[in-house]
Design a protein around this nucleic acid. Structure first.
Lengths: 227, 227
DNA sequence: CCAAAAGTGTTGGTTCTACACCCATGG
DNA sequence: CCATGGGTGTAGAACCAACACTTTTGG
């Protein structure tokens, strides 16, 4: 089905690679954030990576890389960073591009891959070591500008799932009634006509992310986040 | 003193450039954000740029580029983006790296350069055209995580200047007493023993940015910024 | 009945912003 | 004097988080 050897988009040795591309794919397992690692038959685990001969189309390359390692397109894909300073890739690629992808909760890890909670990462190649933490920090930083919490869920989700997604990113528990009231006021979701019966209790209604125009909202001055 | 021809860090033609590097340098003129443009004797204006043979050390290269165009180190320097998709540099460099620098209000534009308000940019090369808007958006987005407003000021500044800096970034007027109360509560600045007499009225005390440890601050759920 | 989902009312706290006012100081 | 800087008190609005409660609906 897939080549387990982390199929580089460009093979080393043809022409000097201009950049290495590493991908952090994050997913929620319901309780924690997890990252996708490649677990080869022998040898150490790595994050998905590739070499680029030509940096042009590196976004497309990131997309391709994500597809190859997931079997599907990610729900979200964004550049995480560029590094030229740190340890470079063994191939000698002078630039290291990092991309961050999100997939919905429940996405299975393909053969040769595993979801590993981000707080329990195995030893990774030196270049990749700091990337997971950077990814988590970036997710937390951007979660109120970008619908991160929604991309960790399938297109249709229950409000309880959404709340858990937020709790996971914020790292603390939220109050159910308050969460829903605030969500209501923000016009971020719309109900579908589908319901999901979870076993016992009343079935949960499914919602989808459908932000509506928000009226003029002026941002307050926020000093507290600086330090 | 300086070479006006936008002294590329690596000259085209020696070996294929691996990346182009563009720099947006922003500064406040007290009323608006302005960006540094290179104004050649003949031809169109450009943003400072360079070609990199080797992406390694591109941060150092950005530093160097900023120094060359400013005559001094910027107060802040951060990567803004990587693009491989759009129009590429005429040299054929496959990757386009963009860095964003800030310098304090009052920094003079060297010979052959000019500060241009970001809302009135001249025609730039196609590749550079969207960069200024992206830079402004990035500044607004990150201003409450990173001390952007402070980097637009000299190390010592008056509270009125700081408030103007915030007003410029937020795009609206703030209330003086409230601004200062909030600033006080955030332990972000410390007074120096210097005062500056501005003409009439009581002299203003100078402050410096000196954030102190902020106690455990839990972030509220923010839905309002999504949409 | 019970469990879970969905939603209402309300309350207490904090934050944001504004208004009005104070004093200090240099020209 | 007056303009400006620095600061206090306070008030209203908005927001946040929690508690308690009701209603709905499947098992």
């Amino acid at each position: 089905m897939r080549d387990r050897s982390a199929a580089p988009v460009a093979r080393a040795g043809r022409s000097p690679a201009s950049a290495s591309l590493d991908l952090i794919v994050c997913c929620s397992d319901g309780r924690h954030l997890a990252a996708l690692v490649v677990v080869p038959l022998r040898g150490a685990a790595t994050l998905p990576w590739a070499l680029l001969e030509d940096g042009a189309g590196h976004e497309a390359a990131a997309q391709r890389l994500a597809r190859e390692h997931l079997g599907r397109a990610p729900a979200w894909l964004a550049p995480l960073g560029v590094a030229g300073e740190g340890r470079r890739h063994p191939s000698g690629a002078p630039l290291s591009l990092t991309w961050l992808a999100l997939v919905p909760q429940g996405t299975p890890a393909p053969e040769g891959h595993a979801w590993v909670p981000v707080h329990a990462m195995p030893a990774l190649p030196a270049r990749q070591q700091p990337m997971v933490a950077a990814a988590v920090a970036a997710l937390r930083d951007r979660m109120d500008l970008v619908p991160i919490a929604f991309r960790l869920l399938p297109p249709e989700f229950t409000l309880t799932e959404l709340q858990q997604s937020y709790e996971l990113l914020l790292g603390r528990r939220l109050h159910k009634a308050s969460f829903r009231r605030a969500l209501q006021a923000a016009y971020l979701v719309e109900p579908t006509d589908a319901w999901r019966s979870e076993g016992r209790g009343r079935p949960a209604q499914l919602f989808r992310y459908a932000p509506r125009r928000r009226r003029g909202h002026r941002r307050p001055v926020r000093f507290e986040l600086l330090g």
